[in-house]
Design a protein around this nucleic acid. Structure first.
Lengths: 131, 131
DNA sequence: TCAATATAGATGTAATTGCATCTATGTCCA
DNA sequence: TGGACATAGATGCAATTACATCTATATTGA
């Protein structure tokens, strides 16, 4: 818990210092760029990012207001929405990645070699497996 | 980040299900019980828990209102305060520990053997070392 | 000594998160 | 069919957190 707090805070700090939005925005933008047509249903983003439904709904409000995504109706289910990444959103993800990648290098990559990183990854996978 | 989120959420959930306060309260109570005379200066708690100063100040407000700590003046430095744990605070920490310990067992202990736990601990120590 | 600066802690205000609930659809089965 | 229940997403409101700043006291150096 402590290590995560330290590392995450350091990474967020680097993003903030570069005048960029927090990591949650990156996570959403990344999932959208990965998706076919750059669009996902809110619940799909929710599953992939572990964001709570109401938090995602409001994060999407902010991101929409900032022009990085927009919502469209989903005609196959009247309850659904599409969340579509915009050109500005694509550009922002790419810009964030330059900063994020160097933060990852500094705060993770420089501290573990490849073997250690693999070990850590495997141990954490054991922990996240649902019991 | 993902694993931490999953495990922490599971532990917090167990505490909440038992009608207990969140982990941050435990951290503060634990530091106070460890300290001589059950008292620390706010900045000492801050260092030990990584809580931001303004967040700790307000957390202490809540804990004081709940009767688990109280603040006293620190006569050697007019700017300072003592934070002192109460009997109710001691009892609450102990009560939380019973739930917390079993949550740790369920969400961590059952998933790693001792060797793996040591490995994880060492890897995380590498990450939290300041570069 | 005193002005400049630093430190401890509190607090006003805004942003975010959590919780409960709401609306609108959709699905299922008697 | 239609009533019961489920699901997708939004939202009102309360609690928490973040940010900036404030007050009070200490320290330091000219």
């Amino acid at each position: 818990m402590r290590t995560q707090q330290i590392v995450l805070a350091a990474i967020e700090q680097d993003l903030k210092a570069a005048g960029l939005p927090p990591l949650g925005w990156y996570d959403v933008l990344l999932e959208l760029t990965r998706a076919a047509d750059g669009r996902l249903r809110p619940y799909e983003i929710e599953e992939r990012t572990l964001l709570a439904q109401h938090n995602l709904s409001r994060l999407l409000d902010r991101m929409e207001k900032a022009g990085f995504v927009h919502r469209e109706i989903f005609s196959e289910d009247g309850r659904g929405r599409w969340v579509v990444i915009t050109e500005a959103g694509i550009a922002m993800r790419s810009h964030m990645w330059t900063v994020y990648a160097s933060a990852l290098q500094r705060h993770l990559g420089d501290k573990l070699d490849d073997t250690q990183a693999d070990q850590l990854s495997e141990l954490l996978a054991l922990l996240s497996r649902r019991s």
